[in-house]
Computed example of a mutant assay.
Amino acid sequence: MTDHESATPQPIPHSVWSNPWHFLAFGFGSGTLPKAPGTWGSLVALPFIPLWQMLPDWGYWLMLGLTMLFGFWLCGKVADDLRVHDHEGIVWDEMVGMWITLWLVPEGWQWLLVGFVVFRVMDILKPWPIRWIDRHVHGGVGIMLDDVLAGVFAWLAMQLIVWGLA
């Protein structure tokens, strides 16, 4: 369970279904699902990977940069709108973390599965400095940055796995 996935679920704002920014931040509604919304958001990110993998490597990298920068704004805006530091249902950050994890990874459902598990482990364990950032950096940057770093750590692990199997 990540720090923003508390034992007591936060109420789901009705605005998720009427405000397009809230709908995006809540992972197309996946962040409203009960128990472990970050896991649901990570799953929702997976169908996008084959599309991103059709891009040239630099195009995928550019998409990562744009979705990350957009996420800094989006997550900050929605958190401000809801007057909550980091609502557990905001899962855009997990989606971007998954996309980072699977950049330059071979195509195939097996790689998606391995990447999903590796990212979730990194996001849940939050190795240093991820945990520190999660607790001390606030706003949209803080919401995004811990998952971006978890994605980078998971990406490094995935690259080691790919190279080890090559």
Score class of each variant (00 low, 15 high):
5 E>H: 08
8 T>I: 07
10 Q>C: 11
11 P>E: 04
12 I>F: 03
13 P>S: 07
17 W>I: 11
18 S>E: 11
18 S>N: 13
25 A>M: 10
26 F>D: 06
26 F>K: 09
28 F>D: 08
30 S>L: 04
33 L>W: 05
35 K>H: 11
37 P>T: 04
37 P>S: 05
45 A>V: 02
45 A>R: 00
47 P>C: 08
51 L>T: 13
51 L>H: 11
53 Q>Y: 10
56 P>A: 11
60 Y>L: 10
66 L>G: 09
69 L>M: 12
70 F>Y: 10
71 G>H: 01
75 C>S: 04
75 C>K: 01
77 K>D: 04
78 V>T: 01
78 V>S: 02
79 A>E: 03
80 D>I: 06
80 D>M: 09
80 D>N: 14
82 L>D: 07
82 L>C: 12
84 V>D: 05
85 H>S: 09
85 H>F: 07
86 D>R: 01
88 E>S: 09
89 G>V: 00
96 V>N: 02
98 M>R: 04
100 I>T: 04
111 W>D: 15
111 W>P: 14
112 L>E: 13
113 L>I: 15
118 V>T: 14
118 V>K: 03
121 V>G: 08
125 L>S: 02
128 W>P: 00
134 D>H: 01
138 H>E: 05
139 G>L: 02
139 G>V: 01
142 G>A: 06
144 M>Q: 01
146 D>P: 05
147 D>Y: 03
148 V>I: 14
157 A>G: 11
158 M>I: 04
160 L>N: 11
162 V>E: 11
166 A>W: 12
166 A>C: 09
